[in-house]
C-alpha cells in the first residue's frame, strides 16, 4: 500500500507541476484583463518541445546536453521527498529539510554550469546572478529551518507537519514569521517577480531565462518541467509545514487519502493563485535590490529563532 502511495506521489509531483504553472499564468492573465492561455497550455508546450529537434551550439560540451537530465532528476527527487497529500514517514528517513535545500542547490549548480558552457555573455550573466541570489537565499533558508527546528524540535518534514497539526499547538509568532520568510524565499528561488521574471527575454534583469537561452527541444522541455516542479515543490513545502491540516497521517484508510488528496489539490490551487495575485501587484526589483529583499527573509528567520529562544526563557 505505502509503496503504491509513494509511487503515486512521485508521479503526481511531475504530473501536476505544469498545471500549477498554468494556474499561475491564467491568474495573472485574468488580473490583467486578458483571457490568457488555457490551463493545460504548459502540457501542450512540453509536448511540442519534446517533438522538436534540439539545436545545440557547435562548441557545446557533453555537460551541456547532460545537464537538463540531471537538473530535472534532482528537482524531481527533491519534490518527491516533500510530503504532499499524506505524511510519508518512509522516505523521510532519507532526507530532511536541509537535504531538500541541498538537492535543489545541486540542481542549481548544474544549471549555472550549463549556462556557462557555450560561452555566451548572456549565459554568464544569468549564471553569475543566479549564484549571487542563491548565496543570499541559502543562509536565509537555513535560518528559517533553524527557527522551525527550534519550534518543532526536528528538521524532518513529516514530523514538522505532525507538530503543527497537533491540537495542543498554541499561537506561535515564530511560526508566522517563518511562514512569511519562507514565502519570500519561495518567490526568490522560483525566479518570480519581484526577483526575476519568467515571462521575459532580452531584458537586462533576467536571470533564469538568460541561463537557459541556448536550450531548445527536449533539453528545454526538461528544464521547463524542472522549473514547474520546483514551483510545485515550494508550494507543497509551505503547505506541508504551515497548513498541514487535511494530509492523511501514516497508516490511515483509503477515505483519508482521498480526503487528503482533495485538500492537497485545493492547497496547490490556493498557492498558485496567491502567487499570481502577488506577482501582478508588485513591480520587478533591480538586481542589486534583490539581496535586500531576501535579507528581509533572513531577518525574519533570525527574529523567529530569537523570539523562540526568548520565549523559552533565557
Amino acid at each position: 500500500m505505502i509503496v503504491l502511495l509513494l509511487i503515486l506521489q512521485v508521479l503526481l509531483v511531475v504530473a501536476l507541476a505544469p498545471l500549477v504553472t498554468g494556474v499561475v499564468r491564467k491568474t495573472k492573465a485574468r488580473l490583467m484583463r486578458r483571457r490568457g492561455p488555457s490551463l493545460i497550455q504548459p502540457y501542450r508546450d512540453l509536448a511540442r518541445l519534446l517533438r522538436k529537434e534540439p539545436v545545440v551550439a557547435h562548441n557545446a560540451s557533453i555537460l551541456f546536453t547532460a545537464a537538463p537530465t540531471f537538473i530535472f532528476a534532482a528537482t524531481w527527487t527533491a519534490a518527491a521527498l516533500v510530503p504532499t497529500f499524506f505524511l510519508n514517514t518512509e522516505l523521510g528517513v532519507a532526507a530532511d529539510f536541509i537535504t531538500v535545500v541541498g538537492i535543489l542547490a545541486a540542481a542549481r549548480f548544474a544549471l549555472a554550469l550549463a549556462g556557462l558552457d557555450v560561452g555566451t555573455a548572456f549565459g554568464g550573466l544569468g549564471a553569475s546572478r543566479e549564484m549571487m541570489i542563491a548565496s543570499v537565499a541559502e543562509p536565509a533558508m537555513l535560518m528559517l529551518i533553524f527557527s522551525l527546528a527550534l519550534v518543532g524540535g526536528t528538521t524532518r518534514l513529516p514530523d514538522l507537519a505532525l507538530f503543527v497539526q497537533s491540537p495542543t499547538l498554541g499561537l506561535h509568532i515564530s511560526l508566522m514569521l517563518a511562514f512569511l520568510g519562507l514565502a519570500m524565499i519561495a518567490v526568490a528561488e522560483n525566479g518570480r517577480i519581484p526577483v526575476d521574471n519568467a515571462a521575459t527575454h532580452l531584458e537586462l534583469t533576467m536571470v533564469h531565462e538568460a541561463m537557459v537561452l541556448e536550450y531548445s527541444g527536449r533539453h528545454l522541455a526538461l528544464i521547463e518541467l524542472a522549473q514547474s516542479t520546483k514551483l510545485l515543490l515550494y508550494i507543497s513545502l509551505i503547505a506541508a509545514v504551515f497548513v498541514p491540516w487535511g494530509s492523511a497521517p501514516a497508516g490511515s484508510d483509503g477515505l483519508h487519502y482521498l480526503f487528503g488528496f482533495a485538500f492537497y489539490l485545493a492547497k496547490l490551487a490556493v498557492g498558485a493563485v496567491a502567487l499570481g495575485v502577488f506577482e501582478v501587484t508588485i513591480a520587478k526589483l533591480r538586481v542589486f535590490r534583490v539581496p535586500q529583499f531576501i535579507g528581509v527573509a533572513l531577518m525574519l528567520g533570525l527574529l523567529a529563532a530569537l523570539l523562540r529562544l526568548v520565549s523559552q526563557g533565557l
Binding site: 545545440v56 557555450v118 541556448e214 527536449r218 522541455a221
Partner: peptide
C-alpha cells in the same frame, strides 16, 4: 517519447 535527433549549429545568444 521525444525526438531523438540533435542538430549542431552556431551559437544563438539571442
Amino acid at each position: 517519447f521525444a525526438q531523438r535527433g540533435l542538430r549542431r549549429s552556431a551559437i544563438w545568444d539571442c
